[in-house]
Nucleic acid binder design. Structure first.
Length: 769
DNA sequence: CGCTTGTTTGTTTTT
DNA sequence: CAAACAAGCG
């Protein structure tokens, strides 16, 4: 399953058998059935959350084959994530067996890579080109900036990468970028983009965006190649269509112009990749792009209880510019969504941990529980807590396995064995482990390489034959090159795992970590072992390298009894009986930068993310927010997310964390605040600061839909000015009691508490004694 | 010249 | 709390 792209069966002539009855159709509802049976022409399926989208997709695929309408190799099925591709492949495989093999089923990027490898020479690449990850990309851009005399401090490579990525997502080659676009480095962005592409070409490398962009160029410049693919892909299926960007859209449109049989499935309310160039507009334009297209709506939700669905619908209803669907369910009632307010991130982890244990004791399966966070940094507190109380868990996504330092290093060694001209990899490991080939030597290699217009590796080979290097460096370099030559000789006789073991040991890389006495060294060694183990699944080194370039390791869950922790983005397409949604605080969720960078559009995307989160739940949904959160080493106070207030009062139950704050929290509680009809609000003592803030107009204007965000951000800051405190002032704090202010630092106070000792706290939560 | 040590800096989401 | 970066040591 690692390589879903075998071309097996391409010449097989026999059409599939054509049974007369198709029992799988009987279990579909009428619109689902229509979506499955409308095989010809353009079809857009608007599938709300939990309406059986995956089922429709897989059944349709099966139906195409079973009716003899298409043979496996005539089908192109595209997804966004590897996880989705794998799931589709598995499910179709269960129904029709090995006929999946011949299908082109995979992510946009994986299929793009496959197309490019076949026709690389038409684009000035060799078919063994390397695919750079964003780390490599940024290194390369940094070199480029330095070479151009642009200060990487003032113009961060990271930002340039973002700009270039944006262009690529829009399908723009350097010559099509409008002059002076972007403003990067005083309008030099476009030139840098052009130079970057040239550099990639000489390196025989592509980045992620190129996997699509270069395909488009290929199709445009080689009509015969395009025609071949158009002939081949008679039936095209696209999952998560709402997340396509312009490049993907162009790519699809070119391919679909042949047979014009294209079926796209999507949900505008679940479009959460706008930051990656996704254009919800694509889904809105569908009917005009494919005249005569049939639009089918799936609105019956089979997943969630009425309560969960009601909460989700109420939140998403605050978005404008929706296609609009009315989801309904047969599943009656259900538990209300629980909203929990806690003091800080650690308490949040404790509370959720307790809840998980309690549910588990009642017989709920851990594998049916998930914690969905906005950003990966939120994961840590849960991991810490679960380790402490012994709850088994798994993290999906998160820090990417293949991007960890030690894995990346090891991979670079292997890449150079396979592709010596990979300069980026070479530079990374030439002095790792330290072997005395430092900056000066590398600079010399660079000069030699540039002079002779060849790769660093080849330049090194030439250089060790001369007297230019100092003897010590020369010998070391010679030894390294000899090592590589030796590994390269045996690479085809060993399987990848054996080769990796050999390279890691003989290069001294393993030894480097064995000697390292820092506390994380053992983990790194473990990871290396894990990597070697994983390589056993791959037939060739090339297959392994392709796999890690395109697939992130941690994206699939095993079925063991574990709680899952992942980002909201990673959770799309999944479902669980119980879902925990922590960190619903302004600035965390909706994320501050989403609002800053894209204003209302950003806010609406965040809201769709909230919608995705809630709709993952079948039975139970817990939403929590913390009053304080640790950011790096300082404490920041937060107020509940506006999304909390958008929850409908009658589908929500508020739980106060008793003990600390008393049990006074009630929906629509005793607070002086007015609440808008139908929305829900509550009081908890620690929310008093928030309360005060809101009474001063924060809520009235601040949460208004569509309002420009700057004003709001400034309002939030007034939280810090709730009350000024002086050094040595006597104060009272809800949790820690009485104390004396030892230091004032903006809104952060260092207080010597009489009972609790010295603590850093936020001024908003302290009252004068 | 290369390596160790301290300092600063910055975390959305992913193929 | 990391990793990237700058300054001093051998």
């Amino acid at each position: 399953m690692d390589d879903p792209f075998d071309l097996a069966g391409a010449e097989e002539p026999a059409p599939a058998p054509q049974p007369q009855s198709f029992p799988y159709l009987d279990s579909l509802n009428p619109p689902q059935r229509q979506a499955v049976e409308t095989l010809e022409g353009a079809v857009l399926v608007l599938a709300g959350a939990g309406t059986g989208k995956t089922r429709v997709l897989t059944t349709r695929l099966v139906h195409l084959l079973n009716t003899g309408t298409a043979r496996p190799w005539e089908v192109l099925a595209v997804t966004f994530t590897n996880k989705a591709a794998r799931e589709m492949s598995d499910r179709v495989g269960q129904l029709i067996g090995n006929r999946v093999e011949g299908m082109w089923l995979g992510t946009f990027h994986a299929i793009g890579a496959r197309i490019l490898r076949r026709h690389a020479e038409l684009l000035g690449l060799r078919s063994d080109f390397t695919i750079l990850d964003d780390d490599d990309q940024q290194r390369l851009l940094k070199q480029l900036l330095e070479a151009e005399g642009i200060d990487p401090k003032r113009w961060p490579p990271r930002q340039l990468a973002g700009v270039i990525d944006g262009w690529k997502n829009k399908g723009l080659m350097p010559d099509r970028v409008p002059e002076g676009d972007s403003g990067f480095a005083d309008g030099r962005g476009r030139d840098l983009y052009r130079m970057y592409q040239e550099r990639l070409q000489t390196l025989n490398a592509v980045d992620f965006g190129d996997l699509l962009l270069l395909c488009i160029r290929l199709f445009q410049t080689a009509p015969d190649v395009l025609a071949e693919f158009q002939r081949r892909f008679r039936y095209i299926l696209v999952d998560e269509y709402q997340d396509t960007n312009v490049a993907q859209y162009l790519w699809l449109r070119l391919l679909a112009q042949g047979a014009k049989n294209i079926c796209c499935v999507g949900d505008d309310d679940q479009s959460i990749y706008g930051w990656r160039g996704a254009e919800v507009g694509n889904i809105l334009k569908f009917e005009s792009d494919f005249p005569g297209a049939k639009v089918i709506r799936l609105e019956q939700n089979y997943r969630s209880t009425a309560a969960v669905l009601k909460a989700a619908s109420a939140v998403i209803a605050n978005n404008e510019g929706r296609l609009g669907k009315t989801l309904w369910t047969d599943i009656p009632g259900g538990e209300k969504v629980t909203v929990i307010g806690v003091w800080d991130g650690e308490e949040e982890a404790r509370t959720i941990g307790d809840e998980i244990e309690s549910l588990h004791r009642k017989g709920e399966r851990l594998s049916e529980m998930a914690i969905l966070v906005r950003a990966t940094f939120q994961m840590r507190s849960f991991e810490d807590r679960f380790i402490e109380i012994g709850v088994p868990y798994q993290v999906l996504g998160g820090v990417r396995f293949y991007q960890r330092q030690e894995i990346k290093d090891a991979t670079c060694y292997l890449q150079i064995v396979a592709q010596p001209d990979n300069d980026i990899a070479f530079e990374r490991i030439v002095n790792t482990p330290k072997r005395g080939l430092g900056d000066a030597t590398v600079q010399m290699l660079h000069r030699a390489a540039r002079g002779a217009r060849q790769s660093l590796y080849r330049a090194a080979e030439a250089l060790v034959e001369t007297e230019e290097l100092k003897p010590k460096a020369r010998n070391t370099l010679k030894r390294l090159l000899d090592d590589f030559a030796r590994w390269r000789q045996v690479k085809d006789d060993l399987d990848p795992a054996e080769l990796a073991g050999m390279v890691l040991d003989e290069s001294g890389y393993t030894e480097m970590w064995q000697r390292d006495k820092s506390p994380n060294a053992p983990t790194k060694l473990e990871n290396l072992k894990e990597m070697v183990l994983a390589m056993e699944d791959h037939e060739t080194l090339g297959a392994y390298l392709e796999h890690i370039a395109l697939v992130q390791a941690n994206d699939s869950s095993d079925d063991t009894e574990k709680v899952s922790i992942m980002t909201l983005h990673a959770a799309k397409g999944l479902e669980f009986d119980t879902v925990f949604l922590p960190g619903w605080e302004e600035e965390v969720f909706p994320h501050r930068r989403a609002l800053e960078e894209t204003g209302n559009a950003g806010l609406e995307e965040e809201r769709r993310l909230a919608y995705v989160g809630i709709t993952r739940a079948r039975q139970r949904c817990f939403i929590s927010h913390a009053a304080n959160r640790r950011v790096f080493n300082e404490w920041r106070s937060g107020i509940p997310s506006r999304f909390v207030e958008e929850l409908p009062a009658d589908a929500v139950e508020v739980r106060a964390e008793t003990g600390l704050y008393g049990a006074s929290a009630q929906p629509g509680g005793a607070g002086s605040r007015q609440q808008s009809p139908g929305s829900f609000a509550y009081d908890a003592p620690w929310l008093q600061a928030t309360q005060r803030l809101k009474e001063r107009g924060y809520r009235a204007g601040g949460y208004a839909r569509g309002k420009v965000i700057e004003g709001e951000a400034r309002e939030v800051r007034t939280l810090e000015n709730v009350r000024k405190f002086q050094k040595d002032e006597r104060v009272f704090h809800q949790k820690f009691g009485y104390g004396l202010v030892a230091r004032v630092d903006g809104n952060h106070l260092l207080i010597d508490f009489e009972k609790a000792g010295q603590k850093k706290v936020v001024a908003a939560f302290v009252d004068p004694a």
